[in-house]
Write a protein that binds this DNA or RNA. Structure first.
Length: 320
DNA sequence: CGGCTTTGACCAGCGC
DNA sequence: GCGCTGGTCAAAGCCG
């Protein structure tokens, strides 16, 4: 089930149509409904409404309202499916984690095995962090760090060319490279919040969708999340482990970026699963999603338009 | 002036 | 062994 692409198209319909109404730039070709609505709203703004136009508008509004209702239901289904998939994923990872940890000794081969693992399950975080203490004690520290790899997908503004992912941590860029498989340059970051923090981050635009930044985190922060200390509430991140857990919603479509990072092994050796299935975490995730929605100007505009549409509809039904 | 970014050079792993 | 590639270093420049 590919819910991400499904939501991307579906939810964008309303957002784009609202943009038309507010005369904001429209992503060309993204939404057939936007094209359909554009003349309707423009006519409404330039000409006094006739009965036919009003009827068409009412019909359109009813259709949009119905679509909003469907989208709400779809979102609910998607969240439920996500929870089910997450549970299945955790079961799978706990069963197959042993195999995945058998990485070759060579550096690049081990990385490619990590990447394959992460590509298959993009929302998964440190799957290998569940390694036993015996294995951890055998490995050099650097290899242990490299095992803590996770990916995060962050959608950015269309015109945003910077390779920055705001996750609450302080990063210092130490390199940039154009890789063979992706014409977009890859940026290399080190955590600069704490001098001894070994965490590195690679950020590169997705080859499929260049508005999406793919951030690959390596290692585990040995310091608290900066936002927890300095600027609480300054970002949208939740730290569950080595890397932040983010739920982001951007203008061109919702990108739910989840990083099911396992808790630090030093603190949670007893539990092999991350605590993402607890009611508290689920509640927080829902709040994060809701917060992301309300912070998104397009969603706000869509909401305002929907409400005003309803009011307009009511006014019309009173007048006519 | 200190911290950060940029960018070319360098190094090491990997495949042939 | 050699070339390709990804990752890192470090000097120079920029900026607040």
């Amino acid at each position: 089930m590919d819910y991400s692409s499904w939501v991307d198209t579906s939810l964008d319909l309303n957002i784009s149509s609202i943009r038309v109404k507010s005369e904001a730039p429209v992503d060309a070709g993204r939404s057939g409904m936007a094209k359909e609505l554009k003349p309707t709203f423009m006519d409404f703004q330039t000409k006094p409404s006739s009965k036919e136009e009003t009827g068409a508008l009412v019909e359109e509004l009813n259709r949009v309202g119905e679509e909003n209702r469907k989208l709400t239901e779809m979102l609910t289904v998607m969240c439920e499916s996500y929870n089910v998939l997450r549970g299945q994923l955790m079961d799978y990872m706990s069963k197959n984690g042993e195999k995945d940890r058998l990485a070759p000794s060579k550096k690049r081969k081990s990385e490619s095995s990590h990447n394959n693992n992460n590509n298959n399950i993009a929302m998964n975080g440190n799957s290998e962090s569940s390694s036993t203490d015996e294995e951890s004690s055998k490995k050099p520290r650097e290899e242990i760090i490299k095992d803590k790899i996770s990916k995060a997908y962050v959608r950015t503004e269309a015109g945003d060319t910077s390779l920055t992912v705001k996750d609450g941590y302080q990063w210092r860029k130490y390199g940039q490279k154009v890789t063979r498989d992706n014409p977009c340059p890859r940026a290399y970051f080190k955590c600069s919040f704490a001098p001894s923090c070994p965490v590195k981050k690679k950020v590169q635009r997705s080859i499929d969708d260049q508005s999406v930044l793919v951030a690959t985190y390596e290692g585990e922060h040995n310091h608290p999340h900066p936002s927890m200390e300095a600027t609480p509430g300054s970002n949208r991140s939740l730290t569950l482990g080595s890397v932040p857990c983010t739920a982001s919603l951007a203008s061109s479509g919702p990108t739910i970026t989840l990083d099911l990072t396992k808790p630090k092994s030093s603190n949670d050796d007893k539990s092999s699963k991350p605590r993402t299935d607890t009611p508290e975490v689920q509640k927080f995730l829902v709040e994060q999603m809701a917060s992301s929605l309300t912070k998104d100007p397009n969603f706000t505009a869509a909401l305002v338009a929907a409400i005003s549409g309803r009011m307009f509809q009511q006014n019309n039904s009173e007048k006519w």
